[in-house]
C-alpha cells in the first residue's frame, strides 16, 4: 500500500458515493448510464469472488464488500426505485460488444488457466471499457450535469492514481502484472478527452457541453 494507491481507492469510493448521493438527493438517475453501472457490478462480482478464497488484509476485504454493496445499491436505485427517471432512450450502447470480447480475451491472454484467474482477468478487461456506455451517453446528449462530470472526474482520477501507484511499485522493484497495467492504461486514456473538457469548462463553472 502506498499513498497513490490509497488516494486512488478513495477517489474510486468518492466517485461511487457522488453518484449514489446524486441519485438519492435528486430522486433521479437522469444522465446516468445504467449499462455502465451494470458492467461495473459484473466487474466487481467477477473480481471479488476471491473474497471466499483469499485474505489479503482487512482493508482489502472491507473495500471489496463496500464496492460490491454500493454497485448493487446503484443498480437497485436505477432499475427499481427510480426507474421512471432512467433515461433509457439515450443509454443504447451495445454492451455485448464489450462483454464478449472481454470474455474471449480473458480466455486467450491470462496468467493461469484457472476459473478464479480467468474471472479476475475478465474483470480487468471489462473494467477498462465499462465506462464507454456512459461516455457514449454524454456524447449522444451532448452534455452532462456538473455532478455527473464530478463523478466521471473522480472515477478517472482513480485510474490515473493507479498508474502512479504502479510506477511507485515498479521503483520498489515489486513484480507487476502486465495485464493489469495495459488494461489500466487503456482505461485511463478513455478519460483523457473528458479530463480536458472538465478542466477547461466544468471547473470554470460552465456546464459540460460538447462542441457541436
Amino acid at each position: 500500500m502506498n499513498i497513490f494507491r490509497l488516494l486512488g481507492d478513495l477517489s474510486h469510493l468518492l466517485a461511487i458515493i457522488i453518484l449514489l448521493l446524486k441519485i438519492w438527493n435528486s430522486r433521479s438517475c437522469a444522465g446516468i448510464s445504467g449499462r455502465s453501472q451494470f458492467l461495473f457490478a459484473i466487474v466487481f462480482t467477477a473480481r471479488y469472488l476471491d473474497l471466499f478464497f483469499t485474505f489479503i488484509s482487512l482493508y482489502n476485504t472491507v473495500m471489496k464488500i463496500v464496492f460490491l454493496a454500493t454497485s448493487y445499491g446503484t443498480l437497485y436505485l436505477m432499475y427499481i426505485k427510480f426507474k421512471a427517471t432512467y433515461d433509457s432512450n439515450h443509454d443504447t450502447f451495445r454492451i455485448e460488444f464489450l462483454i464478449l470480447p472481454a470474455i474471449a480475451l480473458a480466455l486467450l491472454i491470462n496468467e493461469e488457466f484457472t476459473v478464479i484467474e480467468i474471472l479476475w482477468t475478465f474483470s480487468i478487461y471489462l473494467e477498462s471499457v465499462a465506462i464507454l456506455p456512459q461516455l457514449f451517453m454524454v456524447s449522444k446528449t451532448g452534455e452532462a450535469e456538473s455532478i455527473t462530470s464530478h463523478y466521471l472526474f473522480a472515477l478517472g482520477s482513480y485510474r490515473a492514481l493507479y498508474i502512479l501507484n504502479w510506477i511507485y511499485r515498479w521503483f520498489l522493484t515489486e513484480k507487476l502484472n502486465a495485464i493489469a497495467i495495459v488494461a489500466g492504461i487503456v482505461q485511463t486514456i478513455l478519460y483523457c478527452d473528458f479530463f480536458y473538457l472538465y478542466l477547461t469548462k466544468v471547473l470554470k463553472g460552465k456546464k459540460l457541453q460538447l462542441p457541436a
Binding site: T54, I56, K64, F67, K175
Partner: peptide
C-alpha cells in the same frame, strides 16, 4: 503468488 500479480489491488 497473490502479491506478485496485482491481486492485492482493488
Amino acid at each position: 503468488k497473490i502479491t506478485s500479480t496485482n491481486h492485492d489491488e482493488l
